[in-house]
Nucleic acid binder design. Structure first.
Lengths: 264, 264
DNA sequence: CAAAGCTGTATTATCGATCATACAGGTTCC
DNA sequence: GGAACCTGTATGATCGATAATACAGCTTTG
């Protein structure tokens, strides 16, 4: 039996160290073992350890000081944007107003089968497909692929899509958006997403797939979003409800989140 | 400038094809381009294309037929478990009752700084640390690392933790769990998690970090969960609420999910 | 200052991933 | 049947990742 392929030892050590850092095992500001020590510990060459540390440094997780050591970066340069789940999408509309959007692709195509089905399209019906990237402070953090039925897509122009949130354009057209279903998952960055998000191929990404329906149940928007996990994550507050036999967690709604007191 | 490291071309092509498959671009049951065609398209040797296809086949995404071609597997072998967000945690209690749990590690340790802080522990206070794996139909799908203050952890035994959901044990001890905050994100599998979840190192994982508080605000549980995205994902229904000027999405609560109508 | 430790850099050697090519055997279609 | 495709398999050559080693320059410590 051929042994399975080992995809880069450097990557393995990078992952190990990264886990220990984000888990708080190696506290911020602390110095991690020297390169020779790490090399011995993992039974690899020092060159390989260095490449792992290169990756960590490029992500801003560690800071190297020649002659001194390698330290866990305490104030992570870019703080992740926190998306409160109680207003998942409105937060995105806010985002659309306070961040930059780059439109990478725009056009009308025949939809993939899965998307046609989820939107409830008739066979042969075409869709508008757009790919956008959102940036915060000039840095990309999300890669959005949307599919909208052609009849709806035609109510706005390419320039409008580049400037305004898609949901706003949809509602402007008179379509009511009442319900949506969404799924949150994880994947690896493919070549296009990696390039757009300024990442290595194979980096982890948060995914959000949302299908928006109008009151009649007709699908009006299929959104596939990829997020850089270091710049974006979903947060939510939960409260425990129900009687003893049937206690559950439920998202804490309505209550606006207390403003962050951190001075930064 | 040295060009950045390209970690395995085979992996790159694997990711490309995988994306097209899960996006529905290559419809289930369909045949994908021949190996020579793929090799030419990506400017890569056929051997490399084969290794990418090997990965896809091992994940059950494609099926190869000698002499005929490579086809997208239409009935994906393992369906992801769907976690409805309206009862994120109670669903986990249900899981705990209908799935197997393996306890990989159990003990009392000094907590990492980040965890001590999030639980509001006094300096020097120790915690119970446990690592568990959940399996569905004998297949692992989640890797759970929990930290509980020592005084609380001592109210149950290692054997009880292996048999019953942790939150149940906490509540049994008389501690009231009222509030929790959680964050959903994505990472790559490190060596231990990869081994426990039967994955390659560097596979993508969904992460859930939850901190449970009692009514006085004291932290009683710190949970770090890693999920295999092919076997687990978060789903939720949203409704649009609010007046025109301030419309938002809100999780649809209470209403039990309509049973899926798909025959399949 | 000097010793010890660290990161930064370079060199050569080895091993694995990838390439280019060729051929065997199955499937599809005419 | 036979041509044209496909996957499965094997070969030797090439290139990149890793190993082993050495040294320069900086920082910290005594």
């Amino acid at each position: 039996m051929k042994s399975s392929v080992e995809p880069l030892k450097a990557r393995r050590i990078y992952l190990l160290l990264r886990d220990r850092i984000v888990a708080g095992d190696l506290p911020p500001g602390g110095r991690l073992p020297g390169e020779p020590a790490l090399a011995a510990e993992h039974a690899v060459s020092r060159v390989t350890v260095r490449r792992a540390l290169d990756l960590l440094e490029k992500e801003g997780l560690v800071q190297r000081k020649a002659g001194s050591g390698t330290f866990v970066h305490d104030s992570r340069a870019v703080r992740p944007i926190v998306a409160d789940l109680s207003n998942v999408l409105s937060h995105l509309i806010d985002m659309g107003r306070s961040t930059d959007v780059k439109l990478l692709s725009f056009g009308y195509v025949a939809p993939p089968e899965a998307i046609a089905e989820s939107l409830g399209l008739k066979p042969g019906e075409r869709v508008q497909r757009s790919v956008r990237v959102r940036l915060i402070d000039g840095e990309p953090f999300s890669y959005l692929t949307t599919h909208v039925p052609e009849w709806l897509g035609l109510t706005y122009s390419e320039a409008e899509l580049a400037a305004r949130p898609l949901l706003e354009l949809i509602e402007r057209s008179g379509v009511k958006t009442e319900r949506a279903t969404q799924a949150i998952n994880a994947t690896l960055a493919g070549p296009e997403a990696a390039a757009a998000l300024d990442l290595e191929i194979g980096s982890p990404l948060l995914t959000l797939t949302r299908i928006v329906h109008d009151p009649s149940g007709r699908g009006v928007e299929h959104l596939h979003a990829l997020y850089r996990p270091d710049r974006y994550s979903f947060h939510m507050d939960l409260v425990r409800i129900g009687d003893d036999g049937e206690r559950r967690w439920s998202p804490a709604l309505g209550r606006p989140r207390a403003p962050s007191k951190k001075g930064r």
